[in-house]
Amino acid sequence: MRKNSIKNTRVNGEVQRELSRIISREIKDPRIAPMTSVVAVEVAPDLKSCKAYISVLGDEQAQQDTLAGLKSAVGYIRRELARTINLRNTPEIRFVLDQSIEYGVNMSKLIDDVTSSLSEDDRDD
């Protein structure tokens, strides 16, 4: 994997901030879960495409609905991005579900379950 240039890293951060703002404040699609966050953004060096990794707190249905809502609003999101960020090209946005936060929450719960059952066993002795 090639190391991102400083400019590319700055663009990624700026696009991520704007996408987060647009998704949380501008879009009124009921399919998009209220606990949707943009975890990371990878803008191609030529600024033609962009992968936005999103995390949705909720069940699989909520995640699929949110993805569908974002895909249907992608034209509006790109126009807003073009209006707020001054780039030569406004990238084509592809939303990708990122389950790392959900995975972390589940792992944390499993660890808590194990430690609580271990401490109960200690009390039984």
Rank of each mutant, 00 (worst) to 15 (best):
M107C: 02
I85R: 13
T115P: 01
K7D: 06
E92G: 02
E18Y: 09
V96I: 15
V15Q: 04
S72K: 13
S117Y: 11
L57W: 12
A40E: 15
S100I: 03
T90E: 00
E26I: 07
K48V: 15
R10I: 14
R79F: 07
D122T: 09
L47I: 15
Q16I: 10
P45F: 12
T66S: 15
G13D: 11
D98T: 02
L118C: 00
S37R: 10
K48D: 13
V56R: 08
K28P: 03
K28D: 11
S100Y: 03
V39I: 13
V56D: 07
N86L: 04
E92M: 05
A33W: 05
S5Y: 08
R88Q: 12
T115R: 13
I77N: 01
I93R: 02
E14P: 04
S49N: 14
G75K: 08
P91Y: 06
L97S: 03
S55A: 09
R17I: 04
V15C: 01
E120A: 15
R78P: 00
M1V: 10
P45R: 11
K3T: 15
K28W: 07
V74L: 09
P45H: 09
Q63T: 14
Q64M: 09
P30Y: 06
R17E: 08
D125P: 00
L87P: 06
S37V: 14
N86M: 05
L118M: 08
Q63L: 07
D122C: 01
T36F: 01
V15S: 05
E18C: 11
I27E: 02
K48G: 11
P30D: 10
D122G: 02
D124V: 15
R31I: 12
I101Y: 04
I85P: 09
N8K: 15
Y76A: 00
Y76D: 00
R10Q: 14
R21L: 11
D46W: 05
R88A: 10
V39E: 12
V114D: 05
Q64H: 08
S5V: 12
Q63E: 14
V39R: 09
T9K: 13
R31F: 08
Y53I: 04
N106L: 01
Y103P: 00
A33M: 10
L118Q: 05
E26V: 01
A40K: 11
R2M: 12
